[in-house]
Write a protein that binds this DNA or RNA. Structure first.
Lengths: 200, 200
DNA sequence: GTTCTTTCTTGACTTAGGTCAAAGGTCAGT
DNA sequence: ACTGACCTTTGACCTAAGTCAAGAAAGAAC
């Protein structure tokens, strides 16, 4: 499937922000000045463990994963992000301490980056942005909380069903290995869940 | 240990908010008008599953837990909140859908409640509040993300050590049953971890 | 199209953590 | 100070999920 980058990337970001609070001319002009469009190859990193996360990343096209690698070299997926979503290690971004996370493109992608000084500029000069980003992060918070609840209270099988139900759009774009890592099990065990389910 | 409610409760909230962005006279007056101080007994609920969460709750004194009860009648702790922290089911609060969570006092407590219309009033009329609450929730988000990461990538023993290290102030205030529920294990297994650790 | 690298599947075996039950211990509320 | 309701501990046993290994299948990259 070819990737069509037909619409102006910045326009996708403006539309996204308009869904929260409509931007005025001045804010749009400012955004154009301070947002950077980038093309990202498959497997390329936006952030690697040990680095400080310096950007808020908005996905225009493509798919990313954010994960940790533990002492046993195992990958643990924290989140995925696709079109019109944000992906950033907010902890590292704000504290300016080295991140323990990786953000990596799962597909060839196009993103828009906003550097920290620019985001602070928006927060200070256009107070509207505080409101929009408050709402965006509140939504992410709720999603994360539900996921934690699920993780500590349900079986692997149920988490897999919920994943399929909640994120059907991600299913075709991710390997089972990545999904297994997201729901907190091994790829082998996910494979068993799937084959057992297929035999019903 | 007796509970001293000496300082004006509202003043504790004002101090807390001042730590983010100093409030002016008008904002303080507005807060006095729209914030409600309440005394809460041990075991009393601020929210029960099935209800819509109608308040942002700021803890002046005491300790609360927010949890889910699953089909097997088991309790799963999502968070605790003590002095100068907020506890609310943000999902239910914003969507105005029934919550699946309980918020319950672990100790006799005093809180300040802000109802949704009042919070929206602050967000709209004092834009500063958007910034403060954005930062508060960003911090909570980071904490939650670290916890999820831990939950999907470490052993029960390690989670218990981390809990003791990260929340020493909570240790004496909570039963082991509550801590076990928070780190996602059974009380029996936590007891085993503890006795095994003691024998070293 | 072919090659090379990932991914997926399956089998045999292990293990972390859960379940159930019963006996003591604690502690909040009166 | 008493008392009834929780909490904690321990033992015996169970099970969901992990580990290791090796072959088959599927995608990327050339």
């Amino acid at each position: 499937m070819p990737h069509s980058f037909s619409q102006m990337p910045i326009q996708k970001l403006i539309n996204h922000l308009n869904d929260y609070l409509p931007l005025n001319e001045e804010e749009i002009a400012d955004l154009n000045k301070r947002a950077t469009v980038r093309k990202i190859k498959r497997r390329q990193y936006l952030l690697a463990a040990g680095e400080v996360c310096k950007f808020y990343n908005f996905v225009v096209e493509g798919c990313f994963k954010m994960y940790k690698i533990d002492e046993a070299a195992k990958e643990h997926n924290l989140m995925f992000a696709i079109e019109n979503e944000w992906i950033t290690d907010i902890g590292s971004f704000h504290s300016e301490q080295p991140s323990q996370l990786y953000i990596e493109a799962v597909e060839p992608a196009q993103i828009i980056q906003i550097a920290k000084p620019d985001l602070l500029h928006f927060y200070t000069n256009h107070l509207k942005f505080n409101r929009t980003f408050r709402v965006i992060i509140e939504d992410q918070f709720v999603e994360l909380q539900n996921r934690l609840l699920q993780t500590i209270s349900t079986t692997a099988e149920e988490r897999y069903f919920r994943f399929m139900k909640d994120y059907p759009r991600l299913l075709n774009r991710l390997s089972n290995t990545q999904i297994a890592s997201y729901i907190g099990i091994t790829p082998e065990f996910l494979s068993r869940i799937r084959s057992q389910q297929a035999s019903k």
